[in-house]
């Protein structure tokens, strides 16, 4: 079973410490949610797990399937089975969704076997159409330039399409609900639910509880000032919805 283990993680951006000793373990098949107020380091965690070069790990470990992730480049982490659905997906003008996905798949195949000739086009087309159908996406989506001129909802759906296509073992969803209306939220959540199962571990990062009405977490963690301060079951999220974050702050924040 694949396991992502984060141990006492300290992360800085330009000498400013953002994560201050975060620990968390996610197993395949589990859905974890991290909630917390803005500016508490949630997205830093997501980027650090994926290996963004601007984030410096000063202390701690990230272990995935027994391997030290910190030694791996972002592409190696991806090929190892980690996936990040971006809060702000980046536009790649001139590159179609289909071309991009096929390159990504073939790149992974080649990393495994340098002799690999790539996925045959008919097979790729069939696979992509199936995935798009699952996510209720129009097929002409495949011919559009990646995230270029996409609406907020389209960007998030494109992220989930990528996740469906690349079949990760651990998926991190960074504020996937931001900028989505209720219909888009439902469709994206259904997509995630369709993909989740015993082979996928999910880490949902969100500010609001509403996404968790659709994606049911097994574990909920509350993050504050670079650490996880409370952990519990799905009811913890509901509690937050009712009470807000103030009680957490009162309980854990050091008086200024």
């Amino acid at each position: 079973m694949s396991q992502l283990e984060i141990k006492n993680l300290h992360v800085s951006i330009e000498d400013k410490e953002i994560l201050k000793g975060l620990s968390l373990t996610i197993n395949q098949g589990e859905i974890h949610a991290i909630m917390g107020p803005n500016g508490t380091g949630k997205s830093t965690l997501a980027y650090t797990l994926m290996g963004h070069p601007n984030y410096t790990v000063t202390k701690g470990e990230i272990i995935f399937k027994g391997k030290n992730v910190l030694e791996l480049e972002p592409d190696e982490r991806s090929r190892a089975g980690i996936f990040l659905a971006f809060q702000y997906p980046v536009a790649i003008p001139g590159v179609t969704v289909a071309n991009f996905l096929r390159t990504a798949i073939n790149s992974r195949r080649r990393a495994e076997n340098p002799e690999d000739k790539g996925m045959p086009i008919p097979e790729f087309r069939k696979m992509l159409k199936e995935k798009m159908d699952t996510l209720k996406m129009d097929h002409n989506f495949a011919g559009r330039y990646l995230n270029d001129g996409f609406s907020g909802g389209e960007k998030k759906r494109a992220e989930i399409l990528q996740m469906a296509t690349l079949k990760p073992e651990i998926a991190i969803l960074d504020e996937t609900d931001s900028g989505l209306d209720i219909d888009a939220l439902r469709i994206v959540s259904e997509g995630v639910n369709a993909l989740s199962g015993p082979d996928l571990g999910v880490l949902v990062i969100t500010h609001y509880q509403r996404l968790l009405n659709y994606i049911k977490p097994n574990f909920v963690h509350i993050m504050l000032d670079g650490r996880i301060v409370e952990s519990g079951g799905a009811d913890l999220a509901l509690h937050l919805e009712e009470q807000g974050y103030d009680w957490v702050r009162e309980k854990y924040e050091e008086p200024a």
Binding site: G51, P74, D75, P89, V90, I92, R108, A111
Partner: peptide, 14 residues
Amino acid sequence: EEQLFYLMSRGLSE
């Protein structure tokens, strides 16, 4: 850098 990171996070080499 953001474009490269995004594409690499999908398994493409630099």
